[in-house]
Write a protein that binds this DNA or RNA. Structure first.
Length: 353
DNA sequence: TAAGCGTGGTA
DNA sequence: TTACCAAGCTT
């Protein structure tokens, strides 16, 4: 039986030897660097984040620079990373820290968790990495490790199971630790889950808890943690308008909330006739040229996109609300576009239509 | 409380 | 090809 006090000791020792030490956001206690990485890493894998992280730090070297930037610039840099409320909250958080905290992040978990986009786990990650605070994270990695090592049944997304895991995680923290121990501990939780205790084929042979792990000892690695209950994902369909005027295409800013909130996208309609009317409204021909359809899969639904091309004949009608823009295809990279829209427009530019 | 919210990697 | 989901938060 694994004594609770042994858990952190063994994990810290393992992390120092076998953990990750050269990720771009490691080897610093700069809360801005750490905060930015933690927000980007929410529900997003390390390899996906790395290039975005580098671009953000290059453009916004500190929290005040980020706070002073137009939201549109932040969205453009975030485009492709997904979960765009993170980018809007990131910008709001930077402004709060810059204006209300004099540019210095608060150091306590409770204060951090008050900030936009920072929940309980992210607050603990920032507090432990930046300030050496004794606080536990509880992300997907930790849930998987705890479910297996301690044999916790039930879907971790369920409130009752998650609450039990928070309590357990708190009880496993190293006591009165040196800041470097806290860093190694928090990083160790993530590293163990990300490199050994992976979902598909865990490398139990190399695991420091192999002899004590309930899942390993009982051969239940595949059953723990319990899988998310299955749900059928609905399919939606939309028509998108590629309205061209010379080398420019009409973009419309999406509302700040909902899917792709705050990004620039193509005008949409619920069917082809409605799209023709939209094209006409913007000064385009009502004759629509069919483009190759594409399918985009979200976590909670599937979207079938029917793109249609129309010409604007130099009319260049500007919408009254100022939420539309004619974007030259050569400058399309400077707009924050949803991934499938970027794909569509890239293909269009390649085809020289 | 549970649903809404992206994208790309993996098996 | 389909299923699953990753350093979760917000409403």
């Amino acid at each position: 039986m694994l004594a609770l006090a042994d858990f952190s000791t063994r994990l810290i020792a393992w992390q120092r030897v076998h953990g990750r030490h050269d990720l771009p956001w490691q080897n610093t206690r700069d809360p801005y660097w750490i905060w930015l990485s933690e927000i980007m890493l929410q529900q997003t894998q390390v390899s996906t984040v790395i290039p975005y992280y580098a671009r953000f730090l290059a453009r916004f070297p500190d929290v005040n620079a980020l706070a002073a930037a137009p939201l549109d610039d932040v969205m453009a840099l975030w485009a492709g990373l997904g979960y765009y409320s993170r980018a809007r909250n990131l910008h709001r958080c930077a402004q709060v820290v810059s204006e209300q905290f004099g540019g210095a992040f608060p150091q306590s978990v409770d204060e951090l968790a008050e900030l936009p986009g920072i929940g309980r786990s992210t607050a603990a990650a920032i507090a432990s990495f930046a300030f050496g605070a004794r606080a536990t994270i509880l992300d997907g990695n930790v849930k998987r490790v705890l479910a297996r090592v301690f044999g916790i049944d039930g879907f971790p997304g369920e409130k009752r199971v998650e609450n039990a895991m928070w309590t357990l995680a708190e009880s496993l923290l190293p006591d009165a630790a040196h800041p470097d121990d806290v860093t190694a501990y928090t990083q160790g939780l993530m590293d163990l889950g990300a490199t050994l205790c992976v979902r598909g084929k865990p490398d139990c042979v190399r695991c420091p808890f192999a002899a004590d792990c309930v899942a390993n000892v009982t051969g239940r690695q595949r059953e723990l943690p319990a899988a998310r209950p299955k749900k059928t994902v609905p399919t939606r369909k939309t028509w998108m308008l590629v309205l061209k005027d010379g080398d420019s295409v009409l973009l419309e800013k999406r509302p700040p909330t909902g899917i792709w909130g705050g990004l620039w996208s193509l005008p949409e309609a619920a069917d082809e006739d409605a799209l023709a009317a939209v094209a006409h409204g913007f000064g385009g021909t009502e004759e629509l040229h069919r483009l190759a359809p594409l399918t985009h899969t979200f976590t909670h639904f599937k979207l079938d996109i029917e793109p249609r091309l129309a010409q604007a004949r130099g009319a260049c009608v500007q919408a009254a609300d100022g939420e539309t823009v004619w974007a030259p295809l050569s400058e399309i990279d400077s707009f924050g576009l949803p991934a499938p829209v970027r794909k569509l427009l890239d293909a269009l530019q390649g085809s020289l239509i």
